[in-house]
Each structure stands twice: as C-alpha cells, then as structure tokens.
C-alpha cells in the first residue's frame, strides 16, 4: 500500500496539469484504471550487491530482460530526471528501442523509473530489503489507465525470467 501511494505521488507530480486533470476527472467505473504487476524474490546476496547489479550499467546490460534478450545501452544516467536509452534485441534479432526516465533513486533500497517506449506506459518501482544475509527484491510495475490488463500473466512471467538471469549473473560473478 505504501508503494502505491509513493507511485501515485510521483505520477501526479510528473504529469502536466491538463494530463492530471484528465486522469482525475475520468469516470471511475470505465476501463481507465491501471493495473499492477508485482514480482518478489529472496536472493542469497546482500542488499548492496543486488542494488549494485542494477545501478552499474556494465552489470545491468548483462542480465536485463527476459530469457533470450541482449542489450545495447546508449545512455544510462542514473539520477532523478536522467534518461535510460537502450536497445533490447530478442533471440530472433528483433530490436526494441527503450526510452525510460528515472524518477526516484534512494540507494540502496529504491529505484523508480517510468517506461515510455516501446509500446507500454508504466512506472516501475524496484525495492530491495535486507533480510539477514539475504535480500528481498520486489518489482512493481504500475500501468497507466487504459493499458491492457490481459498482459499481466505474460509480464509477470517475463519478470520471473529476468530474476532468473539476475540470480545467475550474481552467482557467476560473486
């Protein structure tokens, strides 16, 4: 619940007045409410190690994306308002130009970014929490109103694959 409130604050402050008004004035009962995709995993690594696996672009480009994807980074500017521009390439060679913008960074427990391209429009919150010698990693994707909620199982599965890759990367390098 706390996270949802954080997201809501971010969302409303990032939008222009017109955009915000249109969202808040939209009727509650129609298909304009967004949806969430939440993934959590306990990793046998420290909070700092897990945070660093994202914050360091040299590591991130190795494990980011579902199974079969590789990445080419153009910009990784990890600060509030900074851009993250990169190309994801799937196993058939199809390319996806990504445009994301960082909204919040609180090392080592939180990173929030908005995904703008391609296709989807969502805000992703990455949370890390130290649990003894381990780390609980949580990803929350908040999709804007009007998004296709049928994608939820697909995205949840893709995020699990991404967690697998992160875990393999950390296991191989640490």
């Amino acid at each position: 619940m706390r996270v949802r409130t954080d997201f809501h604050t971010l969302w409303t402050t990032k939008l222009s007045l017109q955009e915000r008004k249109r969202m808040t004035d939209a009727p509650m009962q129609d298909a304009t409410t967004g949806f969430q995709v939440v993934n959590t995993r306990r990793l046998p690594f420290t909070q700092q190690q897990v945070f660093q696996a994202f914050a360091d672009p040299d590591q991130l480009m190795i494990w980011w994306g579902p199974e079969g994807f590789t990445n080419r980074f153009q910009t990784f500017d990890l600060r509030i308002g900074g851009q993250w521009l990169f190309t994801m390439i799937n196993d058939t060679g199809k390319m996806f130009d990504n445009v994301k913008e960082f909204l919040e960074i609180e090392a080592p427990e939180k990173i929030v970014f908005r995904h703008l391209e391609p296709m989807h429009d969502f805000v992703m919150t990455i949370l890390t929490e130290a649990v003894g010698a381990h780390c609980d990693l949580t990803w929350i994707m908040d999709f804007v109103p009007g998004s296709d909620a049928d994608m939820e199982p697909f995205l949840h599965n893709a995020n699990e694959q991404n967690f697998d890759r992160l875990e393999a990367h950390l296991t191989n390098t640490l």
């Binding site: 017109q18 955009e19 249109r22 851009q83 521009l85 445009v99 994301k100 913008e101 908005r114 703008l116 391209e117 429009d121 009007g146």
Partner: peptide
C-alpha cells in the same frame, strides 16, 4: 528536448 519528454507529448496526442 529529451526522448522521454517527446514520448510523453506523443502519449497525450495518441490518447
């Protein structure tokens, strides 16, 4: 203008 900024404008126009 940054790509994120242009993309946000496009989303308004698209909606």
């Amino acid at each position: 203008m940054s790509l994120p900024a242009v993309s946000k404008h496009l989303k308004v126009l698209e909606k």
